[in-house]
Amino acid sequence: METTFTPLQALMGGSLIGTSAVALMGLHGRIAGMTGIVSGVILPRGDWGWRLAFLIGAIGATALILLLTGMPFSIESTIPSWAVLLGGLLVGIGVTFGGGCTSGHGVCGIARLSTRSILATATFMAATFTTVFVIRHLLGGF
């Protein structure tokens, strides 16, 4: 499925993600990593209230967009459910052992110039490029 290159939305959205990461560090002293935030809510340890609040805000953002623009947010995906399930399982296992994902390692970790995060990001980006190539160009897609 083709999608159009949207540089303005990309820059605007990316800047908002960065603003959120800076605010979470400046106000709460925390890394804006979705893996750590989700894990800290489903396996509650210590301070989980702010994590749940963050998740509610992140999920509620779509409602705010509907309220402001009148347009419901919908996703496009032609991926079959079994593959979404398999992907979700692998992501959950991977981010637990890898200690983070795109937001935690890719944005917050690299911004701190963490060697672990730079290597983790290089590894998962390479793995994703390879996986998409194999699925779409060697196996012929779903």
Binding site: I17, M34, T35, V38, L55, A58, I59, S77, I79, A83, V84, L86, G87, G88, L89, L90, V91, G92, I93, G94, V95, T96, F97, G98, G99, C101, T102, S103, H105, R116, L119, A120, T121, T123, F124, M125, A126, A127, T128, F129, T130, T131, V132, I135
Partner: peptide, 23 residues
């Protein structure tokens, strides 16, 4: 760190969601 990140990338490539995108 490396094996986990590789597994995450494979899952991301299959489903198209990362944790920050899916929530």
């Amino acid at each position: 760190l490396i094996a986990g990140s590789a597994l995450f990338g494979i899952g991301w490539g299959i489903a198209g969601f990362c944790p920050g995108g899916a929530i």
